[in-house]
């Protein structure tokens, strides 16, 4: 599904649309590792990685149904001390990936908090959500604390997509992003009238009514 980009960003002529994805979740759940695996197919040893500062940002072009889409993926800091105004990152996001660590129960239990934040700040109710249980390779070492069934059940109760991944072994990583993109593509209301980045006309429904009410007075 999700093909790696063929060439550099300069031949972005035939890009169908640009999607903004957001990675959120507790610190240490592997958000940055997931992203690094997806965009650069790289994996860093635990002692090589450092906490994300504020937000990181990667771009990747993927192909869905032989149309190209540009993904801008925002990787937010999980650590409280390095977080910055997260609310502003939600603006305009079409997809949100909530990451927990299957070997860390509390990161799973905190998902509800993340959902609350998402509901507070997300600009659109349609935004595509996916729960990702990362570090599924810990099965082998017996470190799993959250059974897959439990994750699935929670995702079902929240009405979101669900997948287990391992950034270390690449298991499920590509599928996770591909599924989110597919869902966004299938929900044109999310992106077709959203403020296109190049467009000067960026009125969403709410602000349009505001400005018109001012014009009336």
């Amino acid at each position: 599904m999700a093909q790696p980009p063929a060439a550099a960003s300069s031949d972005s002529r035939d890009i169908e649309a640009t999607f903004k994805l957001l990675l959120i979740g507790d610190s240490g759940t592997g958000k940055s590792s997931l992203l690094l695996r997806f965009t650069d197919d790289m994996w860093l040893q635990p002692d090589e990685v450092s906490a994300t500062i504020g937000v990181d940002f990667k771009v990747k072009v993927v192909e869905v149904n032989s149309k190209k889409y540009k993904l801008t993926i925002w990787d937010t800091a999980g650590q409280e001390r390095f977080r910055t105004l997260t609310s502003s990152y939600y603006r305009g996001a079409q997809g949100v990936i909530l990451v927990y660590d299957v070997s860390n129960r509390s990161s799973f239990e905190h998902l509800q908090t993340w959902f609350n934040e998402l509901d507070t700040y997300s600009s659109s109710g349609l935004v595509v959500k996916m729960i990702v249980g990362n570090k599924s390779d810990k099965d082998v070492s017996g470190g799993r604390e959250v059974p897959r069934k439990e994750g699935e059940a929670f995702a079902k109760s929240m009405g979101t997509l669900f997948i287990e991944t391992s950034a270390k072994t690449t298991y499920g990583v590509r599928d996770a992003f591909a599924e989110v993109v597919h869902k966004i593509v299938e929900t044109p209301a999310l992106w077709q009238r959203s403020p296109a980045q190049r467009s000067n006309v960026s009125l969403n429904a709410e602000s349009a009514s505001d400005s018109s009410s001012m014009c009336a007075c």
């Binding site: 960026s202 009125l203 969403n204 602000s207 349009a208 009514s209 400005s211 001012m214 007075c217």
Partner: peptide, 27 residues
């Protein structure tokens, strides 16, 4: 424009300040 709205409506429009204006500016 937001300040103008406040001046005219006696503060009633205050909650709207800024809400539609960024996009007004852009559009």
């Amino acid at each position: 424009a937001g300040g103008v709205a406040v001046g005219v409506t006696g503060g009633l429009a205050a909650p709207f300040i800024g809400a539609g204006l960024g996009s007004l500016f852009a559009s």
